[in-house]
């Protein structure tokens, strides 16, 4: 019985839904603040101390606005795709160890790395469906771009995510993170090239700035979000933010040693959560910095960059890792 309540608590409150939601909103605020500071502005300021409640205000406002469904839209998909995409992203986050264990089980299972990457793909596909169902020209162009982009970038993403898995000899996220903490060597030191490639691919997967062609305001109005209003728009925004958290959490687990770090006193889960959140914020700051500094590429540049540069680089990275793991690292570690 206690176990059951514990599970419910873990799913709904910590480190499950409520915690993830708060983290998402906080990261959204941080992104906006970083972006503003880098552009010599101050960013959100009046909603709460330092504007920290700004994402919450946006979210509530969108929830309370009128919800319009255009006559031409495919009603069912249009209504449910944003919500389902959000649910899938949060579900995928439940497999990531946050306080030393993931939300659903202590250690996950063999192959959960593949599962959560697949979840991310499905969520992206739902976003595509949402835009497609809105039957707006800008929406459809935006979603077609989402599709072309994420089909291309998913392959290097999977290949690069395999690098840490190879070094750790496991496809289980908890094992990969634990391997780094037992050897006191985060993989960012063992395979820095993979870290850089992973960040770049992540940026493309999250449709952040050098790669944000799917919703480039100057060409496509709002991309696939163009027709969405009210609660649906709120969930589309939230899905994007959760995707950012998800990508950064993946980087933390695969390259920065996961939630593990020194435990000074008291409960280990507190320290693990603290380390996890701190590392996550660092990754979010890095991606946001890239977003602000770079200008948008054209869609053809994005695609040729993917197939001509990133995919071969990912394959090379994987081969290099295999060679290193087989012949070199055994000499060192």
């Amino acid at each position: 019985m206690i176990d059951f309540f514990m599970l419910i608590f873990r799913i709904l409150i910590f480190p499950g839904f409520a915690f993830l939601l708060l983290l998402t909103l906080f990261c959204d605020w941080m992104e906006r603040k970083i972006e503003a500071r880098l552009q010599n502005r101050v960013g959100p300021m009046v909603a709460g101390p330092g504007g920290i409640l700004q994402p919450l205000a946006d979210f509530i406002k969108l929830l309370t606005k009128e919800d319009i469904t255009p006559r031409a839209a495919k009603k069912t998909i249009f209504k449910f795709a944003p919500l389902v995409a959000f649910t899938i992203m949060v579900f995928a986050l439940c497999f990531i160890p946050i306080d030393g264990a993931s939300v659903l089980s202590a250690n996950g299972f063999s192959g959960d790395l593949i599962i959560i990457l697949a979840f991310a793909t499905v969520a992206n596909f739902l976003l595509f469906l949402a835009g497609w169902a809105s039957c707006n020209p800008y929406g459809t162009i935006g979603s077609a771009r989402v599709l072309t982009q994420f089909l291309g970038y998913d392959i290097p993403l999977f290949l690069i995510a395999l690098t840490p898995a190879f070094i750790a000899g496991s496809l289980q996220i908890a094992n990969i993170a634990a391997f780094q903490s037992t050897h006191l060597l985060p993989f960012i030191l063992l395979a820095p090239w993979a870290f850089v490639l992973f960040i770049i691919t992540m940026q493309a997967e999250l449709e952040k700035d050098p790669f944000d062609v799917p919703h480039s305001e100057s060409e496509l109005v709002g991309g696939l979000e163009t027709e969405f209003t009210g609660a649906k728009l709120a969930f589309l925004h939230l899905t994007r933010d959760v995707q950012v958290i998800f990508g950064s959490a993946l980087v933390v687990e695969l390259f920065l040693g996961g939630p593990y770090g020194p435990v000074f006193f008291g409960a280990s889960w507190f320290w693990f959560t603290l380390w996890f959140v701190l590392k996550l914020l660092v990754v979010v700051a890095i991606t946001e910095y890239i977003t602000v500094v770079f200008a948008r590429l054209r869609i053809d540049q994005v695609l040729s960059g993917n197939w001509r540069i990133l995919l071969p680089a990912a394959i090379l990275s994987l081969m290099l890792t295999v060679v290193l793991v087989t012949w070199v690292y055994p000499l060192v570690v």
Binding site: G43, P44, A47, Y138, G222, T226, T229
Partner: peptide
């Protein structure tokens, strides 16, 4: 002037 201080965002679509 940075109106984002007040939470003002310039949106591209009338739906938003």
């Amino acid at each position: 002037y940075d109106v984002e201080r007040f939470g003002v965002k310039l949106e591209p679509s009338p739906r938003h």
